[in-house]
Write a protein that binds this DNA or RNA. Structure first.
Length: 260
DNA sequence: TCCTATGTTGTCAT
DNA sequence: AATGACAACATAGG
């Protein structure tokens, strides 16, 4: 369930369950989730140690001991699972890694929209994927520059991974809800105060979600997403919830607080 | 059966 | 170049 905070949670999980181990076997169950041939993935990964992980937005990269990186993108429904016995491989396992500590790591991906691939360097990958700076670490000045002079609608602009990397549909909705800004407002019509509010809420939401390891049911009540998915769905009538389509995606707003 | 879904990428028109 | 509409990818679950 992969926007930036979920990927941060998977990164932590990967570091606990897999970083430092040597890969003894790679089984590609579903070739459509690998961007290289199954043979090339096996050739490049088997026998190597997973040395460290890095994250850029929604992308997880794993350093290989003999050079290069394995890249993981989770699509809409990808996830990782570590387990001890091969026969316990979870449903929807698309790539199965066997490790030298006897455990297995599954890349699960029911909808086959996730991808595992290879790259020589972080910079190469970032360039190839047209990723902007990571949303968690981008500076205020850089963020401001990237919105400057843009006439696009603010929601699709924030969703675009080349603006900043890591924001997805629910997070952008929550940023704009908490900042009190309509998703169809054009970026160049925002005041500096509004842009600053977007920046501050972006950091707050990402940090909070990471801290809570993306357990939506534990999110604070001032998060819109708790009305959308979680424990407070029954409280939907407490705000003026409206559902629109913006940039082709379902968009939740509080019509009182977010006006054009 | 129909609809929606936490994402990305390509085409096409403006 | 920038923008935005739309389809495609593929499948599960309500």
């Amino acid at each position: 369930m992969p926007e930036l905070p979920e990927v941060a949670t998977y990164k932590k999980y990967f570091d606990l369950a897999a970083t430092g181990r040597r890969v003894t076997e790679v089984e590609v169950v579903e070739p459509r989730v690998v961007t290289v041939s199954p043979e090339e993935l096996q050739q490049q990964v088997v026998g190597q140690r997973w040395e460290e992980t890095q994250q850029i937005g929604k992308h997880l990269l794993v350093k290989l001991s003999e050079g290069g990186w394995m890249t993981v993108h989770f699509g809409m429904t990808g996830s990782l699972r570590s387990f001890k016995d091969r026969e316990d491989a979870p449903r929807f396992t698309k790539v199965l890694f066997a490790l030298d500590d006897g455990f297995f790591l599954s890349f699960r991906c029911p909808r086959i929209l996730g991808r595992i691939g290879l790259t020589d360097s972080l910079a190469d990958y970032q360039r190839a994927k047209k990723l902007g700076p990571d949303a968690l670490t981008v500076s205020w000045e850089d963020f401001q520059d990237r919105l400057d002079g843009r006439s696009a609608l603010i929601k699709p602009l924030l969703m675009n991974q080349s603006t900043v990397a890591g924001l997805g549909n629910w997070i952008v909705d929550d940023i704009l809800y908490q900042a009190g800004i309509h998703p169809e407002k054009r970026a160049n019509e925002l005041t500096e105060t509004e842009v600053r509010a977007i920046f501050d809420k972006m950091k707050y939401i990402l940090e909070t979600a990471i801290e809570l390891e993306s357990r939506y049911e534990d999110f604070p009540d001032d998060f819109l997403v708790t009305y959308r998915w979680s424990k407070n769905q029954h409280r939907q009538d407490e705000i003026n919830l409206e559902i629109l389509k913006v940039g082709g995606r379902s968009t939740y707003i509080d019509a009182e607080r977010q006006r054009l």
